[in-house]
Every structure is written in C-alpha cells, then in structure tokens.
Design a binder for these strands. Sequence first.
RNA 1: GGAGAGGUGGCGGAGUCCGGUUGAACGUGCCUGACUCGAAAUCAGGUGUACUCGCAAGGGUACCGUGGGUUCGAAUCCCACCCUCUCCGCCA
Length: 450
Amino acid sequence: MHRPLGITAGRRTGWLPPSSCALLRPMLDPRLLSERRDEIAESCRRRGVTADLDATIAARDEAQRLRVALEACSRKRNEHQAAGKQLPPEERKAHGLAGRAIKEEAAALEPQLVDAERAFEILLLGIPNFVHPESPTGGEQDFRELKKVGTPRAFDFAPRDHLELGRALELLDFESASKVTGQKFYYLKNEAVLLELALLRFALEVAREAGYTPHATPDLARRSVVDNLAFSPRGEETQIYSIADTDLDLVATAEITLGGLGSETIFEESELPLRLGGVSHCFRTEAGSHGRESKGLYRVHQFSKVELFAFTTPEQSDDLHEEMLAIEERIMQALEVPYHVIDIATGDLGAPAYRKFDIEAWMPGRGESGEYGEVTSTSNCTDFQARRLKARYRRSDAKKNALVHTLNGTAVAVPRVLIALLENHQQQDGSVSVPTALQAYTGFDRIGPR
RNA sequence: GGAGAGGUGGCGGAGUCCGGUUGAACGUGCCUGACUCGAAAUCAGGUGUACUCGCAAGGGUACCGUGGGUUCGAAUCCCACCCUCUCCGCCA
C-alpha cells in the first residue's frame, strides 16, 4: 500500500475493534495521575469538575498490582510448559496436573484484573484534560475577549433578521421542512443554495492555500470512532444520531472522520504537522437545547461545514492552534462581517479541550439590537484524543514513540455564516449584497430585492 | 441481495492438514558498519507494538482480525462474531 494523504500506511484492517467500544472515550494519561496530581486537581477545580483523584490513583495501583501478579503467574506457566515439552509419557500426567494448578491460579487472577481495570477506567474517564494556563477561569460568561475586529454597522433603516430576509427573498423555508422533517430543519432556496456552495468552496480554498489537504468525508462513522473523538465523558445529553441496527452514527462534525483517519497510526515525525480539511454534513440532535437561543438557522439539526483538523507533535500544537484561528479570522474578514475572538473559560471547555478559541460574528438580528453569536471554534486537544485513537509518531530524538496532538477548527459552518451575511449585508431596498471575496464563487453580487 | 475467497510483522508472503524448539521462514523496504573520491552494486549486523520490573545494563508479560472454548501448551484444533476482496444481480 502506498501512502495516501501522507499518512504512514498502517494495517488498515479497520478502525478500532468494535469489541473495545463499550467504554471508549478520550482520556488522560494514567501515569500522570500521581506525577502531576496537584496540577490535575487544579484543572478540575478550574473546570468545575469534581473528580476523586486519590480514589483513581488507588484504583490504578490496584490494577497494576494485579497485572504484575498475573504476569508473574504467566511466566511461571510458560516455564512449566517449556519444561514439559519432551517429557516421557509416564511423567506426562503428573506434569499435566501441576500445569493445571498454575492455570487455575491465573484463571482466578484474570477476572480480578479485568474488574480492577474497568473500575479504574471509569474513574479515569471522569477526569478531563489539563487546561491552558492562560485560559480564563470560570463559566460560559467568563470568556476573555482577545480582539475585536470591525464595528457593528449602524443602520439608517430598521434592519431585519435573517428569518424575515430569508422569507422576503425566498431563501429559506422552515415551514416545508417542519412538514417533511420536523423542527430545526430547513430548506435553502434560490441564491441561498449557491451561497452555501460558494461558502464551502471558498473556505476550502483558503484552507487549501494554508496547506490543508481537502477531503470530502463520510457523513457516518462507526460508534467506536465517534466515542474516541467526540464529546465529553461528562455524561451530557448525547448530540449524536444513531442509525438503528448498525454501529454507525451520523457525524456531528468532520472532526470525527478526519480524526479517525489517524487512528491506529504511527506517523513519521517528518510528516507532521499533518493538516486536513474536510467538507461534510453535520447532524446534531440538540437534545436538551430547547429554550436556548434557537431562532431560525442558529441551532439546526443538519448543516454543512468545512472543518480543519491537524495531527501535530506536542511542540507544534500551540502554534497550530494560532494558525487555525488565523485562518478562521481570514475567512471572517473576507466575508466582511464584524467579529470578536474569545478565549473560552475553563468551565465551558469540553473534556478533551486544553484550550479553545471561538469567533463570534456580529448578528444584527440577534437579541434586542444585535449580539455576537458563535460562528467558529478551534480547540487544541493535546494528546487527550490521540491516546484513545492510538495516534502516535516516531520521535527522531527518542526511542519511544509518542502520542501526537490533535486540533480542530471550523473554517465555515454554513447556517451561522448565512445569518451573519444576510443580516450584516442587507440593504435598505431589501436586497443583500455579496462580499467581493465570494462573488467569484456565487456568480452574483447581490440578492434581490424581490 | 446471491455465490465464492481471505484476514500473519513497514510491505509482499510462508507457516495452519500432522498443536510445543515461531514474535514468527523467505523476500523486500528501512537503519548502521565495511568497500568506494562519492554513489550504485556487494558483504556483515540491526530493524514491530504496548504494558511492566530495574539507577542502568538488562529482564518479564501480552499481541498472527475480535471474543470465547479444548489443551500442561494454539498463528496452528473447535465455536461465534467482525471486516476485506472477487464475481453475479440491483441502483445514484
């Protein structure tokens, strides 16, 4: 096999074995538990997560003790077997009996080990990743604004929100969607369709120029892959649709399928960082989100997105995180939409995220007289996802292979960008202008008036 | 959907009938050394992953798709499952 995408060809017999599905979730390095205990305790405190570190450490030690005991037993067994190889027939029986005794000893130990490991794993899964020292401490409202670009437009007429614009310009149809599919689905019509394609195409182009290899990715993935990458082990309501009678889920983001590419892989250091860009549909159940700001296109069950994903060495990941943010900003600037960049507070971070930057675009139709609303998000997950993914690389400066770091970011999430475009670029006559950067992809510079 | 073939190390490919000396022949790729002004060719040696014990040197355990069974002992025997490929049919 050659090396598609520059990924070291591994044994691609599949993703992770289905049998290991049950408890798969990203997790922390077990060895760091005691080594960096205080740091982990601090990170949990800042995230507002309660975890019993000492119980976890005790569980790890117990599993370890049993493992050592079982290995000693296996060793004894191996030696016994080797000794019995060419035994004369008359000694066979006695040897067999002795062997059986050892076997039973091991058989007694084994389930204990399995139980101990499971107990440990359950505790470990409750512990989130470290947090970046500079991430602000606090909850959803405690983000730090890193920069603000552009100024919200002062309208000399009463601006409409994207729902009104979408209706007037015949771009959006929620009524039909609710009949056909249900709430929080939508039809795009007329120029909106071309706008979606233009946005995807444009974002892909910006990503490609930055070195991100374009991928059109599957919209479904195995449960095991989803569990390896996706959402927090904090037992939140699941965001994922499952396909009945299969082990497949609809992906909530191409992060899942792009990240899955690196599972069970050992990269060469020279091929890192590996930058991937993916177009996909995203499906989210949005369970438990009723009542949250969910007007129109803001929170929907299905949307199209261009995602950025990277596998890096530990040394590269901070820089790559900045790079992803820069790409996201480049896109927002080209779309001529005012935005600000925020450093997400520790309590609002998903378990795998070490640090997260969001871009919030100005949406004139949001709230009373316009508000910022999230349009992109980029996270550095360090080695948290890679551990379960078994995504490693050969270090040139050490004998041991090391886990890679993974990062993800949104280049374009269509519906939310659509909101920003329609609401920010609306004109007094009811039309909407198309930013210059997009015109090459849309083929028109204005929608309406109608 | 119907029929067949197969899953072994970075890759290719033995071994499976006749269970032990096979972590695994052989080839190839890669690394190191010798030869060379240098390279090619040739020759010699090395070259999986994870966990674990040890200050180190160096040990140990597990892994031949996955899980279970038989056995003192399984890549090799038995059962179940998963996956891949080929052919036919159907279809964007």
